[in-house]
Amino acid sequence: MSFLDRVASARRTRAAGEWIAATVNRVTTRFPWLIAERIAAIVILLLALYFLSVAVSYGLNDGAQAAPGTFPALAAAALVVLSVIWLFTAKPLKKDVEDETPGEEVLDHYAHQEGAAQEELAEAAAHDADATGALESDSHPIRLIFVLVWSAVALPFVEVIGMIPLLFVYLTGLFVVVAQLKWWKVMIFTALTLLLAAYGAYVGGIYLPDPIGIGPFLYGIVARIFGW
């Protein structure tokens, strides 16, 4: 069992998951109107109103020409109307609906496509549900959360330690924790791959930040070995 699997099955993680589920359940029981799609519609509506106000501030009419704000204002107005329509027509996400068969979403999709016969559609939907439904039902949020948190923590240090050292640390972390590879194998493989990538970037004229001067240092070693 990997580190992330152990985290996922740990008592505290499960307790936290149950707490989140209970909180969501409490909120949705108290405010049944508040479903994920409607929350998203409200966020988009607010953004659209903000865009509209900003677009209007750029001006709407410039004599015989369209002002810089005209087209964005039209798009923002359309977005306001669309988000209001979505707000009032939103349905619970399919996952939330217990009595929905797994292939129904896929069948709906194909039903909109023209031409194909219904029986093939049904067959395809059943097949696709077999193929993808199983994958979607068993999500691994801990793994995803780790990747997001690790990326958020590691990547800002590019300007501090440079791109190649940072990618070494970042990828080693991903390979060891997410892909469950042996750390010493990962370190050798990652170091060699990144050296090749750095050389490729140098040849291709791509500037990679290197505040600690690791590039000249490595070049010095290679130059000494080959007597350049």
Binding site: L167, Y170, L171, L174, F175, A179, T193, Y207, L208
Partner: peptide, 24 residues
């Protein structure tokens, strides 16, 4: 294993995105 491919791709994407304008 796909997780190795995905992890490596994340590193590749970081370099790719950075190289567009040399900007984090």
């Amino acid at each position: 294993p796909t997780l190795i491919l995905y992890s490596a791709t994340l590193g590749f994407m970081t370099i790719g995105a950075y190289s567009v304008r040399n900007s984090m």
